[in-house]
Nucleic acid binder design. Structure first.
Lengths: 153, 153
DNA sequence: TTCTAATCGATTGACATCTAACGATTCGAA
DNA sequence: TTCGAATCGTTAGATGTCAATCGATTAGAA
């Protein structure tokens, strides 16, 4: 490892941090937030889902999702009801307002993505996805259906 | 944008999240943490620095750094003294324990980086760095001397 | 010399995230 | 049928981050 060069993890974290901050700022200007967007997106892909599935899809812990869902339910973006077949389970669904919020944020997300891609061709994008997937594989996760690794004490 | 494909920002954030979690776990097992590592690294590169410089180097706000420095000073890893030429400024320096902690964590960091790079050749690494730098440029930041973008209300 | 603006680091409060633990519910082996 | 283990979502507390604000200090124009 060259002494003047950052480790790959630090480089990746810094790039992601900068991109995420800009993305967060864009979403906030559009009246949303990143967690809101991620939950909306998960529920757009699967119209009804339980919380465990959403948390897994989004890549966060159930406890974290509870907080986001509480806020989003209060805001009228989604509803939760007990599954009659298994009363431990919440079925989560978007409301009309939730669907509207998704559309509201979609423009922002698309514009941001376009901005992020500026100067990169499809080959670059594919390469980046491939390399990022390798990194994820190397730390023990796959890009889809990510399982949250336990943090050791 | 293809409907079945994640936006680039989400892909990047997910990869970075997974890598960061693994990195955090590795550092924790070695008795440190990511903020500790980043501060140690910044102070290894510039033996004496003021807080603003460290915060900028690490890529976090001054308020955040204060908390980390408080903890690290309590742990004996570093010391702070007022600059006699400008009493607003703190000069931050590593202690012997701080230098020892750096070495302690260095092995972990190196091993983690090696793990991250598994299956990637030098060309891949260079490509990844280049592409990440493009992304950072596109969101308004450069990879070195990162300025933290303001979050709009 | 005076005074305004800028700088520095700290404090406060809010947001997002995690772990550990919990109560309620369900599953499945005995 | 019983009961221990597993699942589900929630709560509480801790960590890391940010913005806004503050008191102390300095710089520089008038």
């Amino acid at each position: 490892m060259k002494p003047t060069q950052e480790t790959l993890g630090i480089t990746l974290a810094a790039a992601a941090r900068d991109a995420s901050r800009a993305f967060d700022a864009a979403l906030q200007s559009a009246g949303g937030s990143r967690p809101v967007w991620l939950v909306l997106m998960a529920l757009k892909q699967h119209a009804t889902a339980n919380q465990r599935e959403i948390a897994q899809k989004v890549g966060i812990q159930g406890a974290t999702l509870t907080h986001h869902l509480n806020a989003m339910e209060s805001s009228g973006l989604l509803s939760r009801r007990r599954d009659p077949h298994n009363r431990r389970v919440h079925i989560v669904e978007l409301t009309e307002a939730g669907h509207a919020m998704f559309l509201q944020l979609l423009g922002t997300v698309t514009a941001f993505d376009k901005r992020l891609r500026d100067g990169l061709d499809e080959g670059d994008i594919a390469t980046l996805r491939r390399l990022l997937a390798v990194l994820q594989h190397n730390v023990g996760s796959s890009a889809e259906g990510t399982k949250v690794p336990a943090r050791n004490d």
